[in-house]
């Protein structure tokens, strides 16, 4: 019987081989672009212009990375990106958990009203200019808090967290209440420790949102004090796409006898590495949690 079950017909074997081949190809398609960015960031700028650097740096150098470390804006940007990610994500996760707990209390007087407000906010938004004026009237222009306060809640995350908390047995809360714990203590001592999968998911989501956002830097801040890594990358990107002919640019500079130690492309690749690496290092370890968090509450949200 056992032998019969493990027998694979030739057609099934071919099918399996095909299956693994297709999936491996997809995996390569997802991963290779990042690898290539790494290789280009570690290759000598002028050599890169000759083309054909795909699998391995042809002339290895750390100059590109060294070069961007010397750009003053970039250091500020790096610090700001880290600060907004750490502070913003901590604040957001706490706020989302607190609000979700309130919404999950079926006996809460304001529950219906608040729930309706959350749903409405998911479907109607004021738009760019009205929102800009709200930010301006709050005095958040050119203010670091513009990276924190508007991110405090997110309707989608609130609904995901609420459906997780909804699943916890309410007897835990009730017995704590009988023992005299108030709601804040219940949240901190009981709900949050029991919701670690969803807390981890929220930390990842909010941190990625913070780390990746550039638009708010672009429209709500002036000067370079509050610049962020992603925004610096946007600037380099638009500089090198405004004249897609940057290859010719460098060529003409070389012909006129100037020296070229870096090219926009290599700088771009080096910044891309710095902007990508932290995410690359963190998300695989959170995988278990966010799949659970997403499949539990995501659909209905």
């Amino acid at each position: 019987m056992k032998g019969k079950l493990s027998y694979r017909s030739p057609s099934e074997r071919i099918g399996n081989a095909l299956l693994y081949a297709v999936l491996t190809l997809l995996g390569v398609l997802m991963l290779y672009p990042f690898w290539n960015v790494f290789v280009l960031a570690l290759n000598e700028p002028l050599d890169t212009l000759r083309g054909g650097v795909y699998l391995w740096p042809r002339k290895f150098t750390l100059d590109n990375l060294r070069q961007i470390l010397q750009m003053r804006n970039l250091l500020t940007a790096f610090i700001n990106s880290i600060l907004r990610t750490v502070i913003g994500s901590t604040v957001s996760v706490f706020c989302i958990m607190m609000f979700s707990y309130c919404l999950s209390r079926r006996d809460f007087v304001m529950r219906g009203l608040l729930q309706r407000m959350v749903v409405i906010s998911m479907y109607i938004s004021g738009g760019l200019i009205p929102y800009y004026f709200v930010i301006r009237n709050l005095g958040l222009l050119n203010n670091f808090l513009v990276y924190i306060i508007p991110f405090m809640l997110n309707a989608f995350y609130v609904l995901v967290a609420r459906s997780f908390i909804d699943q916890l047995p309410s007897s835990l809360r009730e017995s704590a209440q009988i023992d005299g714990a108030n709601d804040l203590m219940i949240l901190i001592r009981i709900i949050i420790p029991l919701s670690l999968p969803i807390v981890a998911t929220l930390v990842l989501f909010t941190a990625v949102d913070q780390w990746n956002s550039w638009y708010d830097t672009y429209i709500y801040t002036k000067g370079t004090d509050l610049t962020t890594l992603q925004y610096e990358l946007v600037k380099v990107l638009s500089k090198s796409t405004a004249s897609i002919k940057n290859y010719e640019d460098v060529q003409s500079r070389l012909l006129s006898g100037g020296t070229v130690t870096s090219t926009p492309q290599s700088i771009r690749m080096a910044i891309t590495v710095v902007a990508t690496l932290p995410i690359l290092c963190v998300y695989p370890f959170m995988q278990r949690y966010f799949i659970q968090g997403l499949t539990l509450g995501g659909v209905k949200g």
Binding site: C95, M98, F99, C102, M110, L114, M117, V118, I120, S121, I124, S125, G126, G127, I129, P130, Y131, F133, V134, L138, I149, P150, M152, L153
Partner: peptide, 16 residues
């Protein structure tokens, strides 16, 4: 959070 939603989700609607 109610105040937050009023400010960031509903005040912009007045801007319409």
């Amino acid at each position: 959070f109610m105040v937050w939603m009023l400010v960031f989700n509903f005040a912009p609607l007045m801007g319409w």
